Amino acid sequence: MSIAALQQTGDAVRRGPGRPRDEDLEEQILTGALALIDEGEPVTVRRLVERSGVSRAAIYRRWPSMTTLVAAALDVGRTVPPDIALDDGDLRDAVMGTLVGGRSVSAAGYSEERFRQRIRLAMGDRELQTAYWASHVSRRRVPLERAIAHGIERGILRPELDPTTCCDLLAGVVYYQLVVRGEEMSDPLVWRRCQDAFDIAWRGMLADRG
């Protein structure tokens, strides 16, 4: 996106009725940061000031560092999933639907290209990776961890299980396909592989009711 186009976008945002000034500036800054990220350019204060038209002071009033700002920009388009229904239907189906139900990265809130750019940036910068985990990714795991804890409490899952570890295990099935194998979740074979791997893990998590 050109600088002129971004400035027009910022103007349109600022003119929106009823939008607080702080929210306008925040969106303007994130739009500029995302433009730099999508173009493969380093997100520096100087570049961001030039691209967004927002002052350095305005940037640092909202984010304590460029690392936290980039983490916020990478998360634009993502939302915290709703709570998993715990009392209706089968817990296994509900948990699996949360992990692989969308069959695509875009279903999670943004394009596959941006997803891969996120992975590239995070893997190249441990500080960014840690900040992104703490401020964004960990929040999206809460519904899944809560559902697993509920399964333990109800005696569906083994009592000694740790919900956080189980979440790592189950989510890792999907991430391995996308990040390590370079697959697409829209491929039926990949989706079937995730289902099979999920079933293996889930059987190991089930409580012994014998």
Rank of each mutant, 00 (worst) to 15 (best):
S2V: 01
A4Q: 12
A4I: 04
A5K: 13
L6I: 14
T9G: 02
T9N: 04
G10E: 01
G10M: 00
A12D: 11
V13N: 12
G16E: 12
P17T: 03
G18S: 04
R19M: 14
R21S: 09
L25R: 12
Q28F: 00
Q28R: 15
I29M: 04
D38K: 06
D38V: 00
G40M: 02
V43D: 04
T44H: 04
R46K: 11
R47H: 13
G53D: 02
R56F: 01
R61Q: 12
R62K: 12
R62D: 10
S65Y: 05
M66F: 02
A71W: 04
D75G: 09
D75V: 02
V76I: 14
R78G: 06
R78V: 04
A85Y: 05
A85L: 13
A85W: 08
L86D: 06
D87E: 13
D88M: 09
L91P: 08
L91M: 07
L91G: 08
R92C: 13
G97D: 13
L99I: 15
V100G: 06
V100S: 13
G101K: 05
G101S: 06
G102P: 07
R103M: 12
A107V: 08
A107I: 07
A108C: 07
A108W: 08
G109I: 12
G109V: 11
G109E: 10
E112F: 10
Q117W: 00
R118W: 12
R120Y: 01
L121Y: 02
A122I: 11
A122T: 15
G124Q: 05
D125V: 00
R126A: 06
E127Y: 00
E127M: 04
A131E: 13
W133G: 07
A134D: 11
S135N: 10
V137A: 13
R139I: 01
R140D: 08
L144Q: 09
E145H: 02
E145N: 05
R146T: 15
A149Q: 12
A149P: 09
H150N: 09
G151P: 11
I152A: 06
L157T: 08
R158T: 07
R158K: 09
D162E: 12
D162F: 01
C166D: 02
C167G: 04
C167D: 10
C167N: 05
D168G: 03
D168L: 06
A171Y: 00
A171K: 01
G172T: 10
V173M: 04
V174F: 03
V174S: 11
V174M: 10
Y176E: 07
Y176S: 06
Q177W: 01
V179D: 12
G182L: 04
G182Y: 04
E184I: 09
S186H: 03
P188N: 14
L189C: 01
R192E: 10
C194S: 11
C194T: 06
A197T: 10
F198M: 08
D199M: 11
A201K: 03
R203N: 12
G204H: 11
L206Q: 14
A207G: 09
